[in-house]
Design a protein around this nucleic acid. Structure first.
Lengths: 60, 60
DNA sequence: CATGAATAAGAATTCAAA
DNA sequence: TTTGAATTCTTATTCATG
């Protein structure tokens, strides 16, 4: 379910310093969401997340 | 001079909807700054600009 | 140090397919 | 309408060079 996955994404990036979409996909898979980078890319677009070049955090 | 180029970048993205670093490099060249995508990438990092996936504007 | 050319790495999209 | 695999496109970095 996409809504639940979106919620999980927000949760993950609030807790971890995710640097790539592949990395985010990995986290999702560990949490039971079996997705690929392509889907994560679409999710990021839908959630209007941005990639920040910072030592603190990449996605926000 | 890097500072002037940075200023020009801020000016350009405030006026135009730039979608890629290559496109930004083109604009810079038209304004007398002869740079490549590699330098634009570094400038964006230094200016802490972010790429926003929106229909309104790409860089911000 | 700043930069470009070339390349590696990452992200967006196309093209099925379900 | 959603997704993955493959592909294309974009960005970051490496490795010189000025």
């Amino acid at each position: 379910m996409k809504a639940a996955r979106h919620a999980m994404i927000l949760d993950i990036i609030s807790k971890f310093n995710i640097e790539t979409q592949d990395e985010l996909a990995e986290y999702l898979r560990r949490n039971g969401f079996d997705v690929t980078q392509a889907t994560v890319s679409r999710d990021i677009k839908e959630l209007r997340l941005i990639k920040v070049l910072s030592e603190q955090r990449f996605y926000k």
